[in-house]
């Protein structure tokens, strides 16, 4: 059968979410950011909540989110996403509020805002992109940068003796009573993208059911920052990042499900 006979509206089985604008992502080719941004839109579209959703895009590669979505977005200062989300959610408790934060935003400059929003059990969804590097500013060390990993501000590799250890922050957040759901995903295969979508759906449903804070971490690539091709970056991520940041649920329905003492 000729492809042109197949390519008809009635045969369409996959298209990008209609909640995405036509603007081109600022993300580099093969970057996981685009997949997470798109998957969030798919979940919001499928839940039919686009008229009640407000996204928060703080500084980092996340900052242009408002260019890509066709629903309300508020840009935030670096690290302040969770405070901005709190301010919005408290005056509009029936709206859906999510933040989209990188590792620098969530785990360095915004650790305080993140931890306290989680501790208050703010009824929001936190989407956390962990690629172990500062992408927007050109590849500097992040709190999550692995030991020995090279960046422009640790060009001989992260020396944990002087630069501190990679910060595995989501299990820390999971221990806070206000947090109901913590899960860690990736987007390097279609199957993983589909799993992420289910997790995001759970997170937004938690918000609908007023269960407290939901955190969805995505261990992702930064092929530009890492200096690799997209394929090689994904392979490197599986081999190295997943050892320190293993995928899976960490807390579900308010109960810790990951063994914190398990060897990594």
């Amino acid at each position: 059968m000729d492809p042109k006979d197949i390519i008809k509206p009635e045969n369409l089985v996959y298209r990008k979410s209609r909640l995405m604008s036509d603007n081109t992502f600022n993300f580099c080719p093969g970057c996981g950011h685009g997949l997470v941004v798109r998957t969030i839109a798919e979940v919001i579209e499928e839940m039919g909540i686009e008229h009640d959703v407000i996204g928060i895009s703080p500084v980092g590669c996340s900052v242009f989110l408002y260019d890509f979505y066709k629903f309300d977005v508020v840009e935030a200062a670096h690290g302040r996403a969770c405070a901005v989300a709190t301010g919005i959610k408290r005056v509009q408790p029936d709206k859906f509020v999510f933040t989209y934060q990188g590792d620098g935003d969530l785990a360095a400059i915004g650790t305080g805002e993140t931890m306290h929003a989680c501790n208050r059990g703010e009824n929001i969804v936190i989407v956390f992109i962990n690629n172990g590097i500062y992408g927007m500013t050109g590849g500097q060390m992040a709190p999550t940068t692995l030991e020995g990993m090279k960046t422009t501000t640790c060009p001989r590799g992260r020396d944990v003796k002087t630069m501190g250890y990679p910060l595995n922050i989501t299990p820390l957040l999971a221990q806070l009573d206000g947090v109901c759901y913590v899960t860690r995903h990736s987007v390097h295969t279609p199957a993983n993208v589909r799993k992420l979508k289910k997790a995001l759906r759970t997170a937004f449903e938690n918000q609908r059911d007023k269960k407290g804070t939901s955190i969805v971490e995505v261990v992702s690539n930064c092929n530009s920052g890492w200096g690799m091709s997209p394929k090689a970056a994904n392979e490197w991520m599986v081999e190295n990042m997943f050892k320190k940041y293993p995928l899976g649920d960490i807390k579900v329905d308010g109960k810790l499900v990951m063994d914190m003492n398990a060897p990594r």
Partner: peptide, 22 residues
């Protein structure tokens, strides 16, 4: 050879692939 499995569209970071199936 295409089966319309949607893997390519699902993994496209930029959402530039649409999939049709019959």
């Amino acid at each position: 050879a295409c089966t319309g499995c949607t893997n390519c569209a699902t993994i496209c970071p930029d959402g530039y692939i649409s999939v049709y199936r019959v």
